[in-house]
């Protein structure tokens, strides 16, 4: 179905999307790179002299930078592991015959609908608060010392909150994939003498590969930019314990008004994202054809 007429129509119809996205990508990108070479602070208006690599130098040598990189990777990696493993578990469980599947599924999906600011505040106050929070309450009633989550294990706490929000997503995708598995394949394997764990490793898991790829790809995109959860719980602290790259750049550009430094950070974030993206794209590109 391709004639000259339809091909030119196709070009015309795709161009608004392409042009808009190109602008959305190029214009701010060029500006970010340009600003990153200027001494540019919103608090001292007027001259914005050329700064060369200074901004980069200061950004990298700032001790927070190292922490931010590690925190970012720990956050993304930790949440991915929890949600993928947990998601597979949930999917296997929900795929089994049971009563009230609909209700149970709704309960499992629900956290995905909760906005980040709400879930962060709710976990912070109603659960993690050592005095009035539920975990604190339980610990006290058992005669234990309640944990002050955001003081003692701040990064883990944030990983926990964000995982709670993304676990439903992973579960849903993996469950859908699991349900598309041809039952006869499993029965054939059973006839061939495969145990449950054999069937899981050799049939179910390979069948889920594509779905797992999708989960990892989409979640990584969102998880690299975790922001609101940090803003409303720890403000990146204590110290820099929960400062990820996104938050660090927010601090230098919108809190310290240092546009130059923030932009240099932005360039780093873009580079980091691209490194991750190359891996991911390769992965999904391979799975796209299948």
């Amino acid at each position: 179905m391709s004639t000259k007429a339809s091909r030119s129509a196709a070009r015309l119809m795709i161009s608004p999307a392409v042009v808009l996205l190109l602008m959305w990508m190029i214009v701010p990108l060029v500006m970010t790179v340009y600003f990153s070479f200027l001494r540019y602070n919103l608090l001292s208006p007027g001259a914005t002299p050329w700064a060369g690599w200074d901004n980069y130098y200061w950004f990298i040598t700032d001790p927070s930078f190292n922490d931010a990189i590690w925190n970012t990777l720990a956050l993304v990696g930790g949440i991915l592991v929890i949600t993928v493993v947990g998601g597979i578990g949930f999917a296997l469980l929900l795929d089994r015959p049971m009563f009230g599947t609909g209700i149970i599924r709704i309960m499992v999906i629900a956290p995905f609908f909760v906005m980040p600011t709400v879930s962060a505040l709710v976990w912070k106050n109603m659960f993690f608060n050592p005095v009035n929070g539920i975990f604190g309450n339980i610990a006290t009633s058992l005669g234990l010392q309640p944990i002050d989550f955001f003081a003692e294990i701040p990064l883990l706490s944030i990983i926990f909150i964000v995982s709670w929000m993304w676990l439903p997503f992973a579960t849903l995708i993996l469950l859908t994939a699991l349900q598309s598995l041809d039952q006869e394949q499993l029965e054939a394997a059973e006839m061939d003498g495969a145990s449950w764990s054999n069937r899981f490793w050799y049939i179910m898991l390979p069948h889920l590969a594509r779905a797992i790829t999708v989960v990892i790809l989409i979640q990584t995109i969102f998880l690299l930019s975790v922001f609101a959860e940090i803003l409303v719980t720890t403000n990146g602290g204590p110290g820099t314990a929960t400062t990820n790259l996104t938050y660090l750049i927010y601090v230098s550009s919108l809190l310290q008004f240092d546009v130059g430094m923030g932009s240099a950070g932005g360039v780093f974030a873009i580079i980091l994202a691209n490194i991750v993206a190359i891996f991911l794209m390769r992965m999904i590109g391979k799975n796209l054809d299948a």
Binding site: L29, T32, T246, A269, A273
Partner: peptide, 19 residues
């Protein structure tokens, strides 16, 4: 198109904010 989603929002926060 999908790769534009990979562009971290924070990377372009400053210019968008200024624009």
């Amino acid at each position: 198109m999908l790769s534009t989603k990979m562009l971290p929002p924070v990377g372009v926060l400053v210019p968008i904010y200024l624009i």
